[in-house]
Design a protein around this nucleic acid. Sequence first.
DNA 1: TGTGCCGGGGA
DNA 2: TCCCCGGCACA
Length: 501
Amino acid sequence: MHTRRLVKRSVIGSRVYVPGLTGDAAPLTGVIQAVKQDNRDVSTGHRRNVYTVLMQDGSLKEYSEEEIAQMTAKAPLKSSLKSTCNGGQRDGPTQGQNGGVQRGEAPCLSPESTEEPRVLEHKRTGRALEPEKDHTRSVSLLEQKRKVVSSSIDVPQARKSEEEVDMDKVTAAMVLTSLSTSPLVRSPPVKVSEGLNGSWKDGGFTPSSYSSSGYWSWSAPSDQSNPSTPSPPLSADSFKPFRMPSLSGPPDDNIDEHDGNSLLFDEPIPRKRKNSMKVMFKCLWKNCGKVLSTAAGIQRHIRTVHLGRNCDSECSDEEEDFYYTEIKLNTDSVADGLSSLSPVSPSVLSPPPGLDQRQPDGTNGAKSENSTTTPLSRSAPSALYLVHTDHAYQATAPVTIPSTSSTGFTPSSSSFSISWQSPPVTFTGTSASPTHSRTQGFGEQRSQTIAVLSSPPRAAGSLSRKSRGEGRKCRKVYGMENRDMWCTACRWKKACQRFVD
DNA sequence: TGTGCCGGGGA
DNA sequence: TCCCCGGCACA
């Protein structure tokens, strides 16, 4: 965890001394606007940092690290150039093993270790977590981009507080833990040593370049695993050709994305009855109905196809959870291609967006890609399910779920109904949707089941059980000794008919 | 641990 | 179809 927090402070915004126009004349001062790394210095084989300095006259000039260092050393006054090397108050200790390389290359140009408040302020505002390896991009570009992001996306400023930082750390730890065990993180045939020694960005885990406050986020596609993340032993069939992130293509072609992942789960496999059911995830978007085998897949599908986002899981704001539902398919009727089921990811059951569901700063990671898109304003899918109840004494009634969403879920119609009927196929579903109010008053209160949108009354599995009603049951009323007075259902250990709640 | 009841199976 | 029961979730 800590090893990933390769916080590297940027010198962006730092004042430096640069050579004057007349060679070694009086040095000029400027503010570093960007840092680039120049690999062209083949003589030494060492990467040089090239700094784009905003001069006092407003012009931009590029200076090499050496030039700045020289002028800084010659400067009569204390240099203001504060390097990024280990000077952090907060993140310094977090630089872990991987930090060695980064620190070695850090533009540590100033011998001073004290910092002027002004410079500190520069650092706070202008810090860009630019991984050392990613030297082709201009930091200023990132800065610019980040500003665009923060201006268009409502990023809570309160996150800057220390409590928030701690919470983010905890959340990040949870996410990392989750990812390390989730099917999203699959170890591709990548040498572990590369992941450990090299930049773990290469392995798919990158700190968000836009994260300016020391938070890390996943910038890699979820199906690209993180080699540095301890992964459980993979079964042989879990290996698959390492797929590069498809940034442009439709990402919803990953129906087999997590095949075989059930072996990797630490979590218990969802309860199954004898008839093996497959957990699938159905897109609820209007006229879509795409079914994928994994939550991640369907999330990505929704995110990219319907929400128009190009970024991957790191910019997920859980909103996709609204737009798909978990379904369970009878394996007998499922195509053979879906050879294994994917356990229900905990993320599926996550709260909706806006309900204090926060990710470790991953949300503001790459939102800039489509910042103009406002998914909440889009038409959300509506769903109509045919649900089967296989006991005749179980209530069957149409249920109307009013559209009282406060979370932005706005079905195209003001309300829609769900009819409980008997479908010819086994098709049950549970929903990951947040609770929505519903019209009460039909026979059995299956509040837990129907409280979620688009949920059939009896989803196979744990979510299907109705809450224990306080209402009396035959057993309680009559007792075991008067079992003959029970209703038939109670006698048969079925849902009580007599004392329906 | 008791209760409700789903799912399955035998008659 | 009736009846019973294993087993699970939940309080």
